[in-house]
């Protein structure tokens, strides 16, 4: 099943819904019903229906017997809304010859998969697409139409403009979203200090933050044979680089950058997951499940 999680395979699928189902199913099958990472429909308890609960889960039999409206709760189901922050800046549109999909496309796969998985868990899920500003926002909800709405929104996202992480973080904080998980999907080309300052308030609110750093393999280890000019996708800045620099100094700088991001994530008790666009998506989903289990 691992083959089904390969981005090269996923890119051949028709839509995000199918991709998400394929990815999640593949991951769940691989997990072999691990008790740690339980995902089932086993009954756990009844809960008095309150406004906001999904009426689909009202146990009408109980109502018939006792005239009380209660909803059934299942094992593994927690109150863990998921908020996805998707970076759609121009740098996310980068795709090298080593990769079959762009970073944005890969991020869309990841976001769709997370949404699908959260939906299956009956978790409320929302999404915020941003670059320099917030371009699209859908608040967390566990309603039935939320999944296709999010997937449809993801379909329309294109990579353009620059990146300002402070903007979505501030807005999420301001919206007073219920405590849950916040998945930030980005390449994180930003200053660590400013990242910490913008994300730290979310951590203080009790949000569990997952930082999915999406990178093209050429960004980690560039295949650079000749000296040449590299043009920044966001700023348009052209920098002339030598082959030696790209083969020796740049990878070191990139590793240092990733390491500092991990340190920053640790500082706010966030989880940092580095994902390359030529790698399967399971790592991201497993990270999500690990986090979710931490909250239950």
């Amino acid at each position: 099943m691992q083959r089904l999680l390969d981005p090269a395979v996923l890119s051949g699928l028709a839509n995000l819904d199918l991709i998400a189902r394929t990815v999640v199913d593949g991951v769940m099958i691989g997990l072999h019903r691990s008790p740690t990472f339980g995902f089932s429909q086993e009954f756990a308890e009844y809960k008095t229906y309150t406004e906001g609960d999904d009426p689909r889960f009202i146990d009408w039999n109980v109502y018939a017997r006792s005239e009380r409206t209660v909803i059934k709760r299942f094992r593994g189901e927690t109150n863990s809304p998921l908020m996805i922050l998707l970076d759609s800046s121009a740098s996310m549109g980068f795709q090298s010859e080593q990769a079959v999909v762009s970073k944005l496309q890969y991020a869309k796969y990841l976001a769709a998969s997370l949404t699908y998985m959260a939906s299956k868990q009956h978790d409320a899920v929302g999404i915020m697409v941003f670059d320099e500003k917030v371009r699209d926002y859908r608040p967390p909800s566990s309603r039935q139409g939320q999944l296709p709405a999010i997937l449809h929104g993801l379909d329309r996202v294109v990579a353009e403009r620059g990146t300002v992480l402070e903007e979505p973080a501030t807005q999420v904080g301001a919206l007073g979203i219920k405590k849950g998980m916040v998945a930030v999907i980005s390449d994180f080309y930003c200053d660590h200090e400013s990242l910490l300052q913008s994300v730290r308030p979310l951590a203080f609110q009790g949000q569990d933050i997952m930082m999915f750093q999406i990178m093209d393999p050429a960004e980690i280890k560039p295949d650079f044979k000749h000296p040449g000019l590299l043009k920044d996708a966001e700023t348009g800045q052209v920098v002339e680089v030598s082959r030696d620099y790209m083969q020796k100094q740049y990878p070191q700088k990139m590793q240092a950058h990733i390491a500092s991001l991990e340190n920053a994530a640790d500082a706010i008790r966030a989880d940092h997951v580095l994902m390359q666009t030529n790698e399967p998506l399971d790592q991201g989903l497993i990270g999500y499940l690990r986090f979710r289990s931490r909250r239950t």
Binding site: L229, L230, K231, V241
Partner: peptide, 11 residues
């Protein structure tokens, strides 16, 4: 001239 994701780490 090549497109690159970011020139942040380039010298």
């Amino acid at each position: 001239q090549h497109e690159f994701a970011s020139a942040m780490l380039l010298s």
